[in-house]
Every structure is written in C-alpha cells, then in structure tokens.
Design a protein around this nucleic acid. Structure first.
Lengths: 193, 193
DNA sequence: CCTACCGATCGGTAGG
DNA sequence: CCTACCGATCGGTAGG
C-alpha cells in the first residue's frame, strides 16, 4: 500500500464514522502518525479525498451497467445482472461505498452537479431495463422513475448491514436482493396475459 | 408561527440543502434577518435544533407503529397499515423527515446512542409483523432483519423524490409502496401450500 | 434583540 | 516529513 492509499483508507474510515465534516486533516494526521502539513505531500486537499472516492465508485457502477445492458437481452436477465453488478461493486469496498452514498452531498458545487448528472444517467440505464420489461409484458406496468429509485435504495441499504467478513457471500446477497426485488417487479404467472 | 418555529423551519431548509455542518448560526441569522447572538434567545444551541427534529419524528413513527400493531391482526393488514403510517409521517413534513433520515449521525454521542436504540426498536416492531406473516404462511420465509432494513430503505426513499405540491397524494404513495413491497413479501397464490 | 467579543479549530501554505 | 504560522470561521457568552 502506498502512502497515499494508506491515507485514503484511514480517511474513509473516519468519514464513515464521523462524516465528511468530522474528517479533519489534523485528525487524519494523528491516525497516520504524522503532522497535518505532511499530508499535503500526498493529497491535494480534503475535498480531493472525497472527490476521488466518489468518482471511482461512480465509474465502476457506470461501467458495470453499460456492460450489462450491452450483453444481455431479456429484461429480467438484464435486471438480475444489473443487481448483481451493483451489489458486487458496493460490497467490494464497503467504506468507499458508504462514503459514496452518504457524503457526495459535501462535494464542491461543480463536482456535485456533475455527480448528480452521472447518477441520473445511471438511473436512466436502470429505467431502460424496467421499461423493456414492461414493454415485453414481463414486468408490472409501473412508473419507472419511482420504481428505480425505490429499487436502488433497497440495494444501497446493504452498506448499512452487510458484513464482508461474515458468512454471506456478495453473490448470495445479490441473489437474495434480486429475489426480493424481482418479485415486486416481475409479473407473477397467473397475472400474465 | 412563533419565532422559534420560524427558526426551526429555516434551519431545516438549510440542513436539507447543506447538511448539519452547512448550517451555521450566522447563516441562519441572516435568513431570519437578525444577529447570530439573538438566535440564542429562542434556541439553546445548534445541537438542540437537530435533536428536537430527530426526536419529534422518531416519536411520531413509534406512536404509529405501536398503534398499528395493537389494532390489526393479520400480518398483511398490519404491514399495509404500517407502511401507510410511515409514509404519512414522512410526507407530512418533508424537510424534517429528510433531516431525520440523513443528519441523525450528527447528533451528540449520548443522543445518537439513544436514537439508534429507538430505531432498533422501531425496526423490531416491523420484524414482528414480517415474522407473523411467515408464521401464518402468508409471507415468504426470509430473513426478517434484512427484509425490514430493505423495506424501510425503500420507504424512506420517498424523501428523495416525493413532491408534496404535486398530483400524488400521500395515501396514493402509500398504496403504491405497499403494492410494490407487498409483492416482494407476500406469497403469490400458486406458491401457497 | 444588538454590540462586542472569546477561545477553539479549521484547511492550507512557506520554507526548509 | 516537520516547524511555524496565517486568515477565516465557528458556536457561544457577557452585558445591556
């Protein structure tokens, strides 16, 4: 682990526990065993620490959903794989994911705008899947916007309870979530035309 | 509206937009058209502003779920009414609900501990409903803890998108959400024993 | 409700 | 990586 990675790692732990405003360069320096001023040899600013984390996770999620939407054809297959990809990204680095989901509001103005635009795009990719399922007659005919926000919120909740050191594997979490979410979206047999 | 209520109202708007750390007594004073020092004639401290909001919403939610669990008998009826009550509380004051859901982490240590304990109790009331549904054979046999967190996250997402001034009434939001969540939890006809 | 102010802490820089 | 330090801002108080 490079010095910069060490700093990032400790900064994430602090942000997860105390929020972005609870992260101070002096507090971070103590964790690193150095003076606050010395941090600036590895990091440009406090903002940059948050920014890099948010951008990294966003990029991973975008890459995953685009790939899913490119490879698979049926809506239910796309949905299953999109849920899996989302869960795998979040579970891969719980601290980073937690900060990504909770602290993006503290991004500086311009970055925040860009972030929201990218999130909107990500949601749109999910909406395309849901709309496809509706068009094909496999999914319930619901409002795609609110369905996707609800669906993403349910998925994102894993950063509140998932323990990467526990028995449950990320793949199993994905299966459970798809099972749960799928039932809400996918039409049951007797209701199909 | 009393002066204190005005302050609370403006403080909530600021906290919603800029978070608890983005709320400064000086910024709040400007919104109120007074000096920062004058705020202390109506409010004990910045912490107290956050604390009172979190306690109020928590009390409303607790009261609602206890009533629901007291009155109704079947699990699906309890669940429907619990979802409705939760949605009605959140939609009644969107700013307060938003702050309640996002900024409780900024509560001072002791209050935060107490808050988490109450939230755990609230989740437990929901778990009882889900467990009852499972025992009665109406609900899918799933892990109640994760199901409830997922369910609550899906409901809480309404503070992200619901517009109280729009066409959609709180009752309709509740119906939609129960419809969505119910499908995930309640066994479909063909799978019942 | 205001003037005047305090002690503390913040992110960050200069210079070595 | 450290010493020394700056300007800004914070929550809050005294006294009227």
């Amino acid at each position: 682990m490079t010095r910069r990675e060490e700093i990032r790692h400790k900064a994430l732990k602090i942000m997860r526990n105390k929020g972005f405003s609870g992260l101070t360069m002096r507090g971070l320096a103590i964790e690193m065993g150095m003076e606050a001023a010395s941090l600036y040899n590895h990091v440009h600013s406090k903002d940059e620490l948050l920014q890099s984390v948010c951008l990294e996770i966003a990029a991973k999620l975008e890459h995953a959903i685009l790939e899913v939407n490119d490879i698979y054809f049926s809506a239910s297959e796309k949905l299953a794989m999109a849920v899996r990809a989302h869960v795998l990204v979040l579970t891969h680095d719980m601290d980073a994911s937690f900060v990504f989901l909770h602290e993006w509001r503290n991004l500086p103005q311009e970055s925040k705008q860009a972030f929201l635009e990218r999130r909107k795009q990500y949601e749109y990719e999910f909406r395309k899947i849901v709309q496809l399922g509706i068009d094909e007659g496999d999914f319930e005919d619901i409002d795609t916007k609110y369905a996707v926000i609800t669906l993403l919120s349910a998925m994102n909740a894993i950063v509140e309870w998932y323990n990467p050191n526990g028995q449950l594997q990320p793949n199993e979490v994905a299966d459970r979530l798809y099972n749960f979410i799928g039932k809400a979206l996918v039409k049951s047999l007797e209701s199909r035309v």
